Simulated assay, not measured.
Amino acid sequence: MVNLEQANELLAEFNAIANTKKHQPFDKNDPLKVGVDLGTSSIVLAILDQDNKPVYGSFEFAEVIRDGLVVNYVEAVQIVSRLVREAEEILGVEIESAATAIPPGTVGNDKKIVSNVLESAGLMVTTVVDEPEAAACLLGLTQGAVIDVGGGTTGISVIENDEVVLTLDEPTGGTHMSLVLAGYYGISVAEAELLKRDHDQEKTNFIIIKPVVDKMAAITERMLEQHPIEPLYVVGGASFFEEFAPTFSKYLGMVVERPDYPQFVTPLGIAKASGDSKYAE
């Protein structure tokens, strides 16, 4: 059973930490759980204690990932290295290992290169988990589906009896929202990305990008036709619009929940998974 209130408390705490870079008290003698999320629009470092409480977090906006693939390897390594060094200085501990995540269905060299980024930054990779599965780990979801709306893709993991039984990933995400805004206003994609994050313009922007959200809901609908299941949880940075989950619910004709600070659900889930033997490689 998902305790959404408890998850939201953790997310709010992590959001405050990541935006101030002030760590919570922790025992330096205890191992930490570290997760690195290589996202399309940002790279997030999440650190939890052994009780899965947020200790430290940070992020840096970046354009090193496209449609789930690393397109700027050198910059990705530089950013991860920078975030880790900063965390070590603030926490006063050495960070030697971390977990990371990939979109569902990523295989071969595309999967390996994500691990290579962390290894080139001096980290031993403990775990590589699917992004929606990481989100389910944070939420404690043992039955249902997670729709992870990232920058480049919409990934879905169906979970039954605490096991992932179906995954899919479609190339529709936050980047497509930015493309629609850029076309509508006649501005660059970079300008549209900043406009998309402007909460003062959220209601107007959502009306413009709603067809993209409907397409994401249609992807979910096709999955449900293949494998009916509930409850449904939507996460990921592109789902931050207040009308996002209600739009999904209306399209699908069923309740779709969205945690607070959805951009941090997967990073925290990655860190949590790093200490779970179920996910260990």
Results as ranks from 00 to 15, higher is better:
residue 175 T to V: 11
residue 19 N to V: 01
residue 149 V to P: 11
residue 64 V to G: 01
residue 224 L to Y: 07
residue 203 K to Q: 08
residue 127 T to R: 15
residue 225 E to S: 14
residue 200 D to T: 08
residue 144 G to P: 07
residue 69 L to D: 10
residue 55 V to G: 01
residue 193 E to K: 14
residue 162 D to V: 02
residue 253 G to P: 09
residue 186 G to K: 12
residue 212 V to G: 02
residue 227 H to K: 07
residue 260 D to P: 08
residue 276 D to F: 05
residue 78 Q to G: 09
residue 99 A to K: 14
residue 41 S to K: 13
residue 45 L to R: 02
residue 62 A to D: 03
residue 100 T to Y: 02
residue 189 V to H: 09
residue 94 E to L: 11
residue 7 A to D: 11
residue 153 T to L: 13
residue 162 D to C: 07
residue 129 V to H: 04
residue 43 I to N: 00
residue 54 P to V: 12
residue 36 V to D: 11
residue 129 V to E: 02
residue 159 I to E: 04
residue 218 A to S: 15
residue 188 S to E: 02
residue 34 V to F: 03
residue 83 L to H: 05
residue 153 T to R: 12
residue 156 I to V: 13
residue 23 H to P: 01
residue 119 E to H: 11
residue 232 L to W: 00
residue 175 T to G: 13
residue 82 R to Q: 13
residue 71 V to M: 12
residue 237 G to L: 07
residue 143 Q to D: 13
residue 26 F to E: 05
residue 101 A to P: 13
residue 126 T to F: 00
residue 259 P to Y: 00
residue 109 N to T: 15
residue 40 T to E: 11
residue 149 V to S: 06
residue 204 T to V: 14
residue 219 I to A: 10
residue 66 R to W: 10
residue 229 I to S: 10
residue 245 A to Q: 04
residue 210 K to T: 15
residue 36 V to Y: 08
residue 171 P to H: 01
residue 225 E to C: 08
residue 52 N to K: 04
residue 46 A to Q: 09
residue 62 A to Y: 07
residue 280 A to P: 08
residue 136 A to G: 11
residue 206 F to W: 06
residue 193 E to V: 15
residue 218 A to Q: 15
residue 98 A to P: 12
residue 273 A to K: 05
residue 114 V to C: 03
residue 259 P to C: 02
residue 246 P to M: 03
residue 119 E to N: 08
residue 73 Y to D: 10
residue 123 L to C: 08
residue 81 S to G: 04
residue 266 T to V: 12
residue 154 T to G: 00
